[in-house]
Design a binder for these strands. Structure first.
Lengths: 101, 101
DNA sequence: TTCATAATTCCAGAATGATGGAAATGTATG
DNA sequence: CATACATTTCCATCATTCTGGAATTATGAA
């Protein structure tokens, strides 16, 4: 993963509504939720939420698909995993005996 | 962990120099590095780096201690762990059979 | 086609964050 | 005490991000 990608992902997580979206979708699992459903649950105007969903998707944290008139969002587990791996890469120079549990 | 704490931590990670600091210190392990050493390795002015180190420490991602004339920084492994746990909490409603590996 | 629904894009103002030289604050050495 | 060293704080400028109503686009129903 490139540094810029990771920065975009962390920036996406560094905002109350967006962090709420990701946590909600992490819990929801692969089935995801529609944009409107997310807006209702988080009590955010549709317009505002749309900006945030787009940013999260651009950052590789969500994926989306259309189902009839609605657009569903679920979290991108691969994206999340690569981000956390990037952050912890070569932890303690790869020597577990140095690494606090 | 509170939402505000997590937001501060992700915001701290969402910047090139600060992300570089954390990754460098993740690799360096518990022994840490001095502020000056970090400034040299990342080629950042001392003043600028100081702001970033302070922000990372406030966010609970680093800890610091003085050794003679230098101040050492190491990453706060507990802080990192709680952040990642907070993000992934109740993944797939706790049902691993739904959760993509 | 006409209407209703779901979501996104446009736009502007308000707020927040990054940067780094200069000055100030410790901390050790001669 | 005087000096050098390591780091932090002050300060001002510049840039980026957040917000949400109104207008727009896309889809499905009558």
């Amino acid at each position: 993963m490139k540094t810029d990608t990771a920065i975009a992902a962390f920036a996406a997580l560094a905002q109350e509504t967006r962090l709420g979206v990701v946590r909600l979708l992490v819990q929801a699992g692969p089935a995801g939720l529609s944009a409107g459903d997310i807006a209702t649950r988080l009590a955010v105007p549709a317009s505002t939420l749309s900006h945030h969903l787009a940013q999260l998707e651009r950052a590789g944290l969500l994926r989306s698909w259309r189902l009839q008139r609605q657009i569903f969002y679920a979290c991108d587990y691969d994206g999340l995993r690569s981000l956390l791996t990037f952050l912890m890469q070569d932890c303690c120079q790869g020597r577990p005996e140095l690494c606090p549990p």
